Amino acid sequence: MEFCPGCGNMLQYELPNMHDARFFCPTCPYVAYVDRKVKIKRRQHLVKKEIQPIFTLDDYKNAPKTEEPCPRCGFPEAAYRTQQTRSADEPETRFYRCMNNNCGHTWVDYT
């Protein structure tokens, strides 16, 4: 947001149709042209960070167990952990891990 240095009113933007883009003051004759010469001095490549799990495998070893069937293999038992991932008035999120040694599938229940 730009303001007029003469009268202090907020400047309005005028689209570039017949001339260059500019800001102008609606009450006084002040005009400021927008400079289109933008230069990128240095490009920096972003590096993706490694995604770290919320719970490790050791966290599920001593976790409570429940009769929740695995959606992948159908094994009837799963360990679960809970964490508040949304706002305080929302229910906590449950993270399940299948107790079948061959499967080990992990899934989330948001309800």
Results as ranks from 00 to 15, higher is better:
D59Y: 01
T85S: 12
P91Q: 10
F23A: 00
V31Q: 12
E50I: 07
E2H: 11
H45R: 15
T111E: 06
G6H: 13
T66Q: 14
A32F: 07
I54S: 01
D89W: 04
K37M: 08
T82A: 06
S87M: 07
G104P: 00
E50S: 08
T82Y: 00
K48P: 10
T111W: 02
K65P: 02
F24H: 07
Q83F: 02
C103G: 00
G8L: 03
E90P: 01
F55G: 03
C7G: 10
E68M: 15
R86K: 13
D20P: 03
P5V: 11
H19I: 08
N100C: 08
I51K: 15
C4V: 15
C70K: 02
T111K: 07
Q83R: 13
P76G: 14
T93S: 02
M1G: 14
M10G: 15
Q83I: 04
C25G: 05
T111Q: 06
Y110C: 03
V31M: 07
A63P: 06
P69H: 01
T85K: 11
R22I: 12
F75C: 06
R86N: 07
K61Y: 00
T82S: 05
P76L: 06
V38E: 09
C4I: 14
Y80A: 02
R94L: 00
Q12C: 11
N62G: 12
R22H: 12
P64S: 15
K39E: 11
G74Y: 04
P76M: 09
D59W: 05
A32V: 05
C7K: 09
T82K: 12
T111L: 09
N9Y: 10
N101F: 08
T82W: 00
P69S: 10
I40F: 11
Q44P: 00
Q83M: 09
M18W: 06
T66W: 04
I51H: 13
D20M: 08
C73H: 08
E2W: 06
E67D: 08
V47K: 11
R22T: 12
C7T: 14
P26N: 03
D35G: 14
K65D: 12
T56N: 05
D89V: 03
A63C: 04
G6N: 14
W107L: 02
M99V: 01
P69M: 01
K48Q: 15
Q84V: 05
K48H: 10
E90C: 02
P91N: 10
N100W: 07
R86D: 03
C73M: 04
R22S: 10
K39Q: 10
F23P: 01
P29N: 14
V108P: 00
R36Y: 06
T27Q: 13
P53E: 02
P64R: 11
G74A: 04
F95G: 01
K39G: 05
P76Q: 09
D59V: 01
I51D: 09
M10V: 06
F95L: 00
P71L: 04
M99N: 08
D109A: 06
Q52K: 12
F23Y: 15
W107N: 01
N62E: 13
C25R: 04
T27I: 02
P76V: 04
P26C: 00
